[in-house]
């Protein structure tokens, strides 16, 4: 196995992929595929579509890794961005059912304590603290949009609130989040 691929930092691996190392891509897949597949599945809700999203995303990582630079240690976020982008694109093209709090499909009712379960990094700590300052409607809309990949109108349907309220919750939630995160 090539020495580069023995390293485990995601950013370092992406840079190695950018230099054309297939072993680094394989290692990246071993480290990140479960996390990324989970993100895609939650959005597209069909295993075969999620698998295609993951495949396309890794091919894209292979082709575009050279434009990545690991300045801020943001390798995981870069990968998440690619997978979410592809998953959202698949949903816009293929459509999907609106999640309905069905635990068998990985749905969970959006409870206030969902915010507590955001991971443990320093960045997650800041986001959690700032999300907790938002009111419940704003929190729910932002989580449903990011995690489930729902559009304005899908959120409307899911939480049975008027479109105008959903748009304004997201808007005001984003403004408040930004103010808090920039402090």
């Amino acid at each position: 196995m090539d020495r580069i691929a023995a390293l485990s930092s995601v950013g370092v691996l992406i840079e190695a992929v950018g230099r054309g190392s297939p072993a680094a891509l394989k290692r990246l897949y071993e480290l990140e595929s479960r996390r990324l597949y989970g993100i895609a599945l939650r959005i597209v809700r069909r295993p075969e579509v999620a698998a295609d999203v993951l495949q396309d995303a890794f091919v894209q990582v292979w082709q575009n890794a050279a434009v990545f630079s690991d300045e801020r240690g943001a390798g995981a976020a870069w990968l998440t961005g690619i997978v979410r982008f592809r998953a959202l694109d698949a949903v816009r093209k293929l459509g999907r059912e609106i999640p309905s709090d069905d635990p068998a499909l990985g749905d969970e009712p959006i409870e206030p304590d969902v915010i507590e379960r955001i991971g443990a990094s320093t960045q997650a700590e800041a986001l959690r603290r700032c999300l907790q300052l938002l009111d419940e409607g704003q929190q729910r809309c932002i989580v449903l949009a990011f995690v489930d990949g729902l559009s304005h109108s899908e959120i409307t349907e899911r939480i049975k609130a008027p479109l105008g309220s959903v748009k304004s919750w997201i808007r005001r939630g984003l403004l408040a989040l930004r103010e808090c995160l920039e402090q």
Binding site: I39, R42, A76, R117, L127, L181
Partner: peptide, 9 residues
């Protein structure tokens, strides 16, 4: 900044 939300999936 929003990336940590992806841990909810």
């Amino acid at each position: 900044n929003l990336e940590p939300l992806s841990t909810l999936a």
